[in-house]
């Protein structure tokens, strides 16, 4: 059932964007949309009376990293925050959101060095997991390329390889950019300054990048499909196109559902691409059937 009082947004964020999230929540609350839950990058806001609220997004050291369940020690942490004026709102693994209408109370983590250490630890653990997936994926892709006797599965492995290479590139860029940010932050602390956290504009950039990446994968697959067709490998081409159609058939409705309130340009690009791809698929089938 459609609920007019709730909106969902997809927000792609890194742990260096905690301040950006705080700004986002404050702005949304001023418009009457209160953050209610965060589940795998999907942010749910609830409609209430607009109010001026401060938000604090913290990495809680006692929290579990693989579940949203709140353990005993974290309950104590939350209680101490509540007593000092910060109400717990929601959490996503170890990332906890607190809110307060009081402008005068101190932030939850007043020690910049401590917060930086918590971020570094969490980023390392998250990156380690992503790298593990990348390595396993890479191994499976390369094994199949080394003995590709089963040619019918080839298009799938081409797709997997393209996906894997771009995924690895993104991981490398992410790691480098975090390292640079971290070095800068340590420099700031050593010289007695505040750490410069990313502002809200970074969230827009990440969102654009995310959709851009999806579009990039689709374009690459189309190029491959065309290349296969030109080389007389129509079966490959069709499998590829079906893959794209399936991928986008899943992604596009998802994007629309998540961004009901703000359908971005990138989402429009993806929708256009799907239509084009479906058209190509429809056109290719009769040609094949006629044996041209």
């Amino acid at each position: 059932m459609k609920n007019e009082n709730v909106i969902k947004k997809f927000i792609s964020y890194e742990l260096t964007d905690l301040k950006a999230l705080e700004e986002n929540f404050t702005e949304m609350a001023a418009e009457g949309w209160y953050i209610r839950s965060i589940r795998s990058g999907i942010f749910e806001y609830e409609k209430k009376e607009p109010a001026k609220l401060r938000y604090c997004v913290e990495i809680v050291p006692t929290a579990d990293r693989n579940t949203n369940r709140i353990n005993q020690k974290t309950a104590e942490y939350i209680e101490l925050c509540r007593q000092s004026g910060w109400e717990f709102v929601c959490n996503s693994a170890e990332v906890y959101v607190f809110a307060s209408p009081d402008e005068s109370i101190p932030v939850i983590t007043t020690d910049g060095d401590e917060k930086l250490k918590l971020i570094k630890k969490s980023v390392r653990i998250r990156n380690a997991l992503l790298w593990l997936i990348a390595v396993l994926n890479g191994l499976s892709v390369s094994t199949h390329f080394l003995n590709y006797e089963n040619e019918r599965l080839m298009p799938f492995w081409i797709f997997a390889a393209v996906f894997w290479v771009s995924y690895a590139v993104i991981l490398i860029i992410r790691s480098i950019s975090f390292h640079r940010w971290y070095k800068n932050a340590v420099g700031n602390i050593d010289s007695g300054n505040q750490i410069e956290y990313n502002g809200k504009e970074v969230l827009k950039k990440r969102k654009k990048f995310f959709y851009g990446y999806l579009a990039f994968i689709c374009v690459l697959l189309i190029v491959m499909a065309v290349w296969c067709m030109m080389n007389g490998q129509t079966a490959f081409a069709i499998t590829l196109l079906v893959e794209i159609a399936v991928v986008t058939a899943v992604i596009v409705p998802l994007v629309i559902i998540l961004n009901k309130s703000d359908l971005s340009v990138a989402a429009m690009v993806i929708i256009t691409l799907t239509v084009v791809m479906l058209l190509i698929t429809v056109m290719v089938f009769p040609i094949l059937l006629l044996g041209i």
């Binding site: 913290e58 942490y77 101490l80 925050c81 007593q83 000092s84 939850i108 007043t110 020690d111």
Partner: peptide
């Protein structure tokens, strides 16, 4: 208790030293 410590620290230091609940917990 935690909240009393935060208040006491403020009082002792003439509000110069401020500790947030997260930092205090750790």
């Amino acid at each position: 208790c935690g909240i009393e410590i935060m208040e006491k620290v403020g009082e002792l230091s003439g509000q110069r030293v401020v500790i947030g609940p997260g930092t205090l917990y750790t």
